[in-house]
């Protein structure tokens, strides 16, 4: 052992080799794993507008307080699923559709990834289609108007002098509506419930990005 304490070169070689060993197994091997690159069946790349929205999301650091991963835990599939109070009230149904846990194939178009680490606010992996566009606009302009008790900042610089959303705000909402839709769980869940209950659909639950604006 004396030699690693007296010869710099020997110490350097051993340190580097050990570091590369762990790097190989925990980083290089996953990089070679094709299943981590295969898109899910419903996955589609971001549109230009959504991509612009993703850049706003990155710039404003939304990802510091919102994760984008439904962990593989029963309680999270319920929390981020469709609860009675959100989606099904308008159908007059009490039901809960679990959100599928996040899968690698949903993220293949994410560069950089925005999985996040901290939930000062709720997870956004399945937020697409949960609210309509005007809710998001109001929430960005004044978070506490839609979510009393929220500690999110108001993104006033995404709105013009008359309080109308700028292109950036519209793009951001388009991006948010895209989140989690690389698996078509929301449509399938709604269809399933409707079939089970035989209730007619009063309105579309997923809104289109073009409808953004006051």
């Amino acid at each position: 052992m004396k030699i690693v304490e007296t010869k710099v070169v020997v110490l350097v070689i051993f340190v580097v080799l050990l570091a590369l060993l762990g790097t190989y197994f925990t980083m290089i091997v996953p990089l070679m794993d094709e299943s981590l690159y295969t898109p899910t069946k419903d996955a589609r790349p971001y549109t230009k507008l959504e991509l612009k929205g993703k850049q706003v999301y990155q710039r404003e650091g939304c990802w510091y307080c919102h994760t984008q991963q439904v962990r593989n835990l029963l309680v999270e599939t319920k929390r981020y699923g469709m609860g009675e109070e959100e989606t099904f009230k308008r159908f007059g149904i009490r039901a809960l559709v679990q959100a599928p846990p996040s899968q690698p194939g949903e993220y293949v178009y994410d560069k950089p990834h925005l999985l996040g680490t901290r939930r000062t606010g709720p997870d956004l992996a399945r937020v697409g289609g949960k609210y309509d566009n005007s809710w998001h606009i109001n929430h960005l302009r004044d978070p506490r108007s839609t979510s009393p008790g929220s500690i999110m900042p108001a993104y006033t610089w995404l709105f013009d002098k008359n309080g109308r959303p700028t292109e950036e705000a519209i793009a951001l909402v388009a991006y948010l509506q895209k989140l989690g839709t690389n698996i078509k769980w929301r449509e399938e869940g709604v269809a399933l419930i409707k079939k089970m209950q035989g209730v007619p659909s009063p309105e579309e639950t997923t809104t289109q990005t073009q409808e953004v604006g006051e």
């Binding site: 051993f14 340190v15 050990l18 570091a19 060993l21 762990g22 790097t23 197994f25 925990t26 980083m27 996953p30 794993d33 299943s35 981590l36 991963q69 962990r71 593989n72 835990l73 846990p101 996040s102 899968q103 690698p104 949903e106 993220y107 999985l115 680490t117």
Partner: peptide, 22 residues
């Protein structure tokens, strides 16, 4: 020293436990 040089580099994925990684 030598245990940290060997062990530490393997641990990063514990930040994404239950997440979408193998």
């Amino acid at each position: 020293f030598w245990t940290i040089a060997f062990l530490y580099i393997w641990t990063g994925a514990h930040h994404i436990i239950f997440g979408p990684i193998p």
